[in-house]
Amino acid sequence: MTGRLSRFLLTMLVFGYAFLYLPIATLVVYSFNESRLVTVWSGFSTKWYGALLENEALLAAAGTSLLVGVVSATAATILGTLAGLALARRRLPGRMLFTGLLATPLVLPEVILGLALLLLIVAVQGLTGWPAERGIGTIAIAHATLAMAYVAVVVRSRLVGLDPAIEEAAMDLGARPAAVFFRITLPMIAPGVVAGWLLAFTLSLDDLVLASFTSGPGATTLPMAIFSSVRMGVSPQINALATVIVLVVTVVVLVAGRLVFAGGQRR
């Protein structure tokens, strides 16, 4: 009976990994397809990578997405870390309300959130004149608004597992709250902060709905460019670009995992 259960679990595990990663592997393979038709293999070629380097519009969209991702992930990590710290270490009035408001972006459909942010941006623009136009800044604000909720959840779960007596002992010995945070709390929750940043960056890089609502004519993110090109037919350059992104993300995840593992070993 145990052997049958083990074989069943192994089969389900293989099926799950195949379901997740086989499409990505197929995309990588077809990025080296010589044919312009992405579903017909006609031979090995790297010409689409060369064509990608000459596609200024697609590269500009990729650069915009990377810039928005870094800015929004950094802002979301700062705000989400502070929110997670307040929820885990402080007795706030209206704590349950704050927790509910923070969790709302996690369950709210992105269409509704995007429309709400668009109306807010238009209202603020009419009252203050800022922002002058919708673009990279407004997209970054929208992405940070969504991602900070995820970061707060990750950081809070990390803080809940830590003994607050360590921080209290440091303050009893005369350390100021800022020194306790930067020299004791932050190093202990660093893996959660890094994980939150990576999650926020991934959400920003992948988002299409919020960017479509909050972008202007001068800012096009990579998902927007891909979505508009897919409606006219998938170009093999998209496969090449996706392969490059998969490679970069894999390297970043491996490096981040290495750093987190090394930090855990030192502790």
Rank of each mutant, 00 (worst) to 15 (best):
A116F: 13
R156M: 14
G114C: 06
L199Q: 05
P131D: 08
V160Y: 02
W197A: 10
L115T: 09
F181H: 03
I166D: 06
V194K: 07
F182H: 07
A170T: 09
D172M: 12
P131H: 11
R134E: 05
A149F: 07
F182N: 00
R158D: 06
V193T: 08
V122I: 14
P187Y: 03
D163Q: 09
V193P: 13
F201Q: 03
I141N: 03
M171H: 07
P187Q: 00
G196I: 08
T185M: 02
L146V: 06
A152L: 03
G192N: 14
E167R: 05
A142S: 12
E133V: 03
A178L: 14
I189E: 04
V153Q: 14
A144F: 07
L120K: 01
P177E: 04
L118K: 04
M188E: 12
A116W: 11
H143K: 00
L118F: 15
I121T: 08
P191T: 06
V193Y: 11
L159I: 13
L115S: 03
A170L: 03
L117N: 04
L186Y: 12
V153A: 11
A179M: 01
L120I: 07
V180E: 00
T185Y: 13
S157F: 00
R183H: 05
I139W: 12
L146R: 00
A144H: 05
L186M: 07
V124C: 11
G174D: 01
W130P: 02
V180H: 01
L159A: 05
E133I: 00
D163E: 11
M171Q: 12
F181I: 14
V180W: 10
V154S: 02
G196V: 02
F181R: 01
I184Q: 04
L120C: 15
L117V: 02
H143N: 12
M148T: 01
M188P: 06
F181Q: 01
A178I: 15
G129K: 07
E133H: 14
A170H: 02
A190K: 15
A140W: 09
G174V: 13
R158H: 11
A152E: 08
T145W: 13
